[in-house]
Every structure is written in structure tokens, then in C-alpha cells.
């Protein structure tokens, strides 16, 4: 029996008249890599923000490992936002120290190994890195935590294909049967090989929830092809 690590119940988020999330409910078990797929503005980022306590829902709730979102969940959730959130003035070794200071499950050794394999010097200031390297550093720090839930919001946005491969490899390497990874993206072709399950989200609603294997066996097409069908403009 797979323990439920993430559950979303009747979750709604409204901004005035606009509905970003419309009564969403779903559950995720441990040990899977889940794709949260949808076009821009479908509610993926809103969902992730609520799961991380950066937004409060209008109605409904998210529970992580049975706990409501709060300090308890923040210590077991590792979040990669879709924008640059690290202090630009810090050096790489200071960033590693920062993560180590606040997260008990952070492995500085793991982070340092990965950073070294990228050829990055510990004394480099974050602001002097190229965009691709900044994305990699943020991802490395996020995946060097031994978290129970990883929430990655557009981890591959705006980077070259080689960097995308590196990011996918890092995610696979960080995977464990004990933890779950949720990747929100619209770059599906790259990512679908590593996904177990996909959730299609559109205009704040989950329109499809399936395992990748059953989509391919039953529909005879890739998730990317199905996505294009479902979300045809």
C-alpha cells in the first residue's frame, strides 16, 4: 500500500472574479515522478505556490504527509520556483552553507560533488553565472536535499537542450522510492520518459489523470501528442 504523500481536496483559488484553481482534488503516493502538464495560465504555478505556503487558497486545502501547509511541511518539501530566487550577492559556497543552515535534510557533500562536476568554483558569486548555470545551481541545491516531496516549477524553462538533459539526469539521480517528484512543465517531449503519472490541468481543472504507460498503450501515442490534442488551440 502506497502511502499518500500529497493530497489536494476541493482546492479553489479565486482572484476577484477570476478563478485560477477550480475545485481540484487529487492524491499522490510516494515514490513516483509526476508531471503536472498544462498550458500557460492553467494554474500549475498557483497550485505549487499554495502547496508551499506562498499563497492561501480561497477554499479547500492541501495536505502534505497528512499535515496542513506550514513549518512542518516546509521542512520536508523541496521547492524549485520558476524564477531566480537565490540572493545574487552570495558566493556558491555561501549558498551551500545557507541551505545547510536551514534544512536538516540537506547534504552539502552531495551538492558540492554536483557543483564540482559542473566545473563551478565555490568562490563565484551567483550573479556572475550564466543563466544556464544559475538554473543548474538552483536545481542542484533543491535536489541535494533528502526531501519527501520535490516540487519543481518549470525546471527546464529557458535553457538549452544539453542543460535540459543535465536537469533530467539530476532529477533521476535524486529520485528515491521514499520521495515523490512533481514536475510542472509545458516542455513535455523532453520530460515524458521519466514520468510515471501525468496530470493534465486546464483553466484550473484537472482534465486528465493517468499513468504514462497506459496512455501510450491505450492511445498509442506519446504524452506530448496527447497533450497537443487535448489542448489544441
Amino acid at each position: 500500500m502506497n502511502e499518500i504523500i500529497f493530497s489536494c481536496n476541493d482546492l479553489t483559488k479565486k482572484y476577484g472574479k477570476e478563478t485560477a484553481l477550480d475545485n481540484i482534488s487529487f492524491e499522490l503516493g510516494r515514490g513516483s515522478i509526476v508531471g503536472l502538464l498544462g498550458p500557460n495560465g492553467s494554474g500549475k504555478t498557483t497550485l505549487m505556490k499554495i502547496a508551499n505556503g506562498l499563497l492561501q487558497p480561497t477554499a479547500g486545502e492541501i495536505k502534505i504527509k497528512g499535515m496542513p501547509v506550514g513549518i512542518g511541511t516546509k521542512s520536508i518539501v523541496s521547492y524549485l520556483p520558476d524564477c531566480m530566487s537565490l540572493p545574487e550577492w552570495m558566493r556558491i559556497r555561501e549558498l551551500v552553507k545557507f541551505y545547510g543552515d536551514f534544512y536538516a535534510d540537506f547534504s552539502a557533500r552531495k551538492a558540492e560533488e554536483m557543483l564540482k562536476s559542473l566545473g563551478l568554483d565555490n568562490e563565484t558569486r551567483f550573479k556572475t553565472l550564466s543563466k544556464g548555470n544559475k538554473e543548474k545551481v538552483q536545481l542542484i541545491l533543491t535536489m541535494s536535499r533528502n526531501a519527501e516531496l520535490y516540487l519543481l516549477d518549470e525546471p527546464m524553462g529557458g535553457v538549452d537542450p544539453a542543460t535540459r538533459d543535465y536537469i533530467l539526469d539530476t532529477i533521476i539521480a535524486g529520485y528515491s522510492e521514499n520521495s515523490t517528484v512533481v514536475i510542472s512543465t509545458h516542455l513535455i517531449a523532453d520530460v515524458e520518459k521519466i514520468l510515471d503519472t501525468v496530470l493534465f490541468i486546464d483553466k484550473g481543472r484537472i482534465v486528465r489523470s493517468d499513468s504514462v504507460d497506459s496512455i501510450r498503450s491505450n492511445e498509442g501515442k506519446s504524452v506530448d501528442a496527447l497533450f497537443r490534442e487535448v489542448f489544441r488551440c
Binding site: 539526469d169 539521480a173 521519466i194
Partner: peptide
């Protein structure tokens, strides 16, 4: 899995 670029479960 890493070499093939696929999900370890798969």
C-alpha cells in the same frame, strides 16, 4: 535509468 534517461520505476 540515468543512462537511458528514464524513470527508475520503469
Amino acid at each position: 535509468a540515468t543512462d537511458a534517461g528514464v524513470n527508475p520505476n520503469t
